[in-house]
């Protein structure tokens, strides 16, 4: 196996782009010191090679993964790509190289540095998406459901099936403000699209009433004699509270309407 060379790859930030980095690494028999997404800068003074995304090359790498190391490894890599792990690209590249070398058992090499780092990152992603299945809060206005989240990982693809399954006859939107993406659903179509600013509609009376009912329930259901804020915090870290109805004040929950209101529309699909 070639040593890590003193070259750095720069790719376009897409999954296909990353697969092309893998292609390049095999083609040139070199292992880059790092793989940079657009806008990332290197700290070392290595030569930066721009890797052009080529569908055919990406397709060849993609097809080889399940045959060489199994479908599980492909799922794993796709998930790894959604994580917030710093330098996830180089880890994925190194993981795939291990996979070509060892075959499907790469998925069992949990004591290897690269594999265990990626496993931890994917576990984090899955945990966050599982938590958000519960913590997402929709507002219902004009019969449409809207929600905002600020996750660390790119969780929308993992939330898609769950929420589409849950509300098959509704129209809903989940805005991931961290990554500038939104999951949009209308019976029975869905899409994940890039979106920057989005002004959610003003809540109506019914919506405000349900928020108050929920806060009443939330405050009532705790048993004073068992008060345990530490335990609550460990199950429900504070960074999720921002968008949760139970912690908002009534006036805070009414979004202000800006001038450049970009009205929410479900006709984007």
């Amino acid at each position: 196996m070639p040593d890590r060379s003193d070259v750095i790859y720069q790719y376009d930030g897409s999954f296909d782009g990353l697969l092309c980095c893998v292609f390049e690494s095999y083609d040139k028999k070199e292992i880059p010191a790092d793989v940079l997404a657009p806008g990332q800068h290197q700290a070392m003074l290595f030569a930066v090679k721009n890797i052009v995304t080529d569908e055919q090359r990406a397709g060849r790498v993609l097809a080889s993964i399940p045959t060489k190391m199994g479908g599980l490894a492909l799922d794993f890599v796709r998930h790894a790509f959604l994580t917030c792990l710093p330098q996830k690209e180089i880890y994925i590249l190194l993981f795939l190289r291990l996979g070509y070398q060892h075959g499907p058992c790469v998925m069992n090499m949990l004591a290897d540095d690269v594999v265990s780092t990626l496993f931890k990152a994917v576990t984090h992603l899955k945990r966050e998406s599982h938590l958000l299945k519960g913590f997402v809060r929709f507002s219902v206005v004009n019969n449409a459901l809207t929600a905002e989240i600020e996750p660390k990982n790119c969780v929308l693809p993992l939330l898609m099936d769950h929420f589409c399954d849950r509300y098959p006859e509704e129209s809903f939107l989940i805005h991931d403000k961290t990554h500038g993406m939104a999951l949009i659903y209308q019976p029975h179509r869905h899409a994940i699209i890039p979106i920057d600013a989005l002004q959610l509609p003003e809540p109506d009376e019914e919506e405000l009433a349900f928020r108050q009912l929920w806060r009443l329930f939330y405050d009532t259901i705790a048993i004073e004699g068992r008060y345990n804020p530490k335990c609550r915090m460990s199950h429900m870290p504070k960074r999720y509270w921002k968008y949760m109805t139970e912690f908002g004040q009534p006036q805070e929950l009414i979004p202000k309407l800006g001038d450049q209101v970009k009205r929410l529309s479900f006709n984007i699909l």
Partner: peptide, 16 residues
């Protein structure tokens, strides 16, 4: 829908 693993939607002040 129902999810076999169960989903927690919130945690009360008593941590439950």
């Amino acid at each position: 829908n129902a999810v076999a693993a169960g989903i927690c939607h919130s945690f009360a002040a008593d941590g439950r």
